[in-house]
Design a protein around this nucleic acid. Structure first.
Lengths: 340, 340
DNA sequence: TTGTACGCGTTATCAT
DNA sequence: ATGATAACGCGTACAA
């Protein structure tokens, strides 16, 4: 018996497979989902039909029927900082391992931020949401919870949301300690403005730990040596130029991120200052470029934080209410290179 | 009359809206999709019902009914090179502007590559596919075409697939010209191996243009000054160390990418060679870090290439068979910095 | 163990 | 202009 070739090229459906194998769609579905009650005979016939037809189940139909999309969403300001990209690496790895798709949503402006949560962060597009380096307002969280959409935050926190974070204050103290041990007493700081469009919080925490360590070492706080601005290399450079232009310029600068540290390095070069002799510089993150650049920095487990965030989220999706898997992240550590 | 509150929290459907507004689902659908035949009266009632119920259409159901997912997929070796990330930037921007979601699929190994095309690159998950820095085999293309899945390639090409590419050979010649103008005669090359796991093609093209320019300038080809290896900073560094360790070491090196150029810079430093005095270095791409690093390079419009790729793909999805929108990409140019 | 039939939420095609 | 209803493709009670 010969099957009629349909005039219009239409991908085979589960019904075609059933017909072809001489079974019901239910049996095909059972084979597809490895339900063990199917007899070997049936299973083989179905498998063969699937292969000969080149059948692939429609994930759209699957999503509708199952109520889940087998994909997770990631919303973050990806392209403003290499550290977010590095975290994403860990996320992508885990998602792939678990057979989950990855939907990306980059937010660089306030409008995009709003759009992300209004249109993209929907229960019907993704099974869960990973929010990286982006604070969530109470309203944001409320809407998410109301949508029954599992959420995990990375590099930011909210009382009602599980998150992955490091000891930013401790890291700031580490940086300060490193500089102090090198004999520095006048130490500047360059970081993110506390109330920028997204209100990054880690920079502020790093500054707090930095200040405290200075005080403990008996160094008077010098607020005018601390400068904050928009995130990014260029703003940091401008800030640092002003800082290093002073007569009583600091002998060392702690930047709240490697990206900003690079801006500081540029400023030093522009002013003809030698690093580390005239001014030492330490950053935060240990992004990949830090090594060839010779940038001293406080290393944090970026990629691991992404993986951990994905684990938490996938667990929440699977219904594991337990946050038990809180194995410790790799500890922060100072990586001393040529700029200190 | 009072609506019964359902015991289980179930997101409102189009039917709930219809009931609430006292109209049929068809009318609601028409309002949702801005079909102009609806009377103002009806429209208002529906809008109100939608608002009061907090209704949002299910994109899963929409996908099934419409046969499209309103998302594009991007498959690429994202995390091996910053240049791909930069291209992605352009893609993300366009996708967002056009209301398309972005599904990411990172492939770093051969298995992942296969899995990407077998499971991910499906007509039912995405409306089109953007392949970045990844060559496609005839079989790959055949499968994609058979699936009726629009595809656009960026930084790679295939006879049957529209693509966005630059004049790599011309860029190689540009680099050679820059070095020659600086008085160099013994010039080395560090690039990707032609038959690596993914077979990057641009490196090879850049080398071709580089060689040709050298010959035109009357410089004899020196095959032993050309080294190829896996992509990445570390392999490039190893290659360069061997190259610079020679007694008759080159006075300049052209690296097929900035990432590799950084490896060359590391090698020079490790050997105590001054840049550019002992050895000049020029890269390719002009990734963001090139500037603060002072790396001379051949600039290519990375971000723009991503945007153009997305435009092409979105056009193909919309049925615009025309590749007419082939406005020229920004031209390649040498950016001379401190390493030459 | 296998098959039938309905539900998932939307769009589109018909009548009216 | 509006409403009823059949797809879209799959999972799954329930019946057999």
């Amino acid at each position: 018996m010969e099957e009629a070739v349909s005039a219009v090229h239409r991908p085979p459906t589960i019904r075609d497979v059933a017909r072809h194998a001489g079974v019901s769609v239910a049996t095909v579905s059972r084979v597809l989902n490895d339900v063990p009650v199917v007899s070997d005979d049936m299973r083989d016939r179905v498998r063969e039909a699937i292969a000969s037809l080149g059948y692939r189940p429609s994930s759209a139909a699957r999503s509708l029927s199952l109520g889940r999309s087998q994909a997770i969403g990631v919303v973050a300001p990806f392209f403003t900082s290499p550290s977010v990209v590095e975290r994403l690496r860990g996320v992508a790895e885990r998602a792939r391992e678990c057979g989950y798709g990855l939907m990306l949503f980059d937010v660089e402006t306030a409008e995009q931020r709003a759009a992300a949560f209004a249109e993209f962060a929907r229960r019907d597009r993704v099974d869960g949401l990973l929010v990286i380096s982006l604070p969530l307002s109470d309203d944001d969280v409320e809407a998410l919870v109301h949508d029954r959409l599992p959420v995990v935050m990375v590099d930011c926190a909210h009382p009602r949301v599980p998150h992955v974070a490091i000891d930013d204050a401790g890291g700031g103290a580490l940086a300060a300690g490193h500089l102090i041990a090198r004999g520095h007493r006048r130490i500047g700081f360059v970081g993110d403005e506390p109330d920028g469009p997204f209100g990054f919080t880690s920079s502020e925490n790093r500054r707090r730990g930095f200040r405290r360590a200075l005080q403990r070492a008996g160094i008077r706080p010098a607020p005018d040596l601390e400068r904050c601005g928009a995130h990014g290399r260029a703003p940091a450079r401008a800030l640092a130029e002003a800082l290093l232009h002073r007569r009583d310029r600091p002998t060392a600068v702690f930047a709240a991120s490697d990206t900003q540290a690079i801006g500081v390095l540029e400023a030093a070069r522009a002013l003809g200052l030698r690093v580390p002799d005239d001014v030492a510089v330490i950053g935060f993150d240990d992004i990949e470029i830090a090594e060839p650049l010779g940038l001293s920095t406080v290393r944090q487990p970026l990629r691991q934080s992404g993986a951990r965030g994905a684990d938490l989220l996938l667990g929440a999706i699977a219904g594991a209410g337990a946050r038990a898997g809180d194995a410790a992240l790799a500890p922060l550590e100072v990586v001393a290179r040529r700029t200190t």
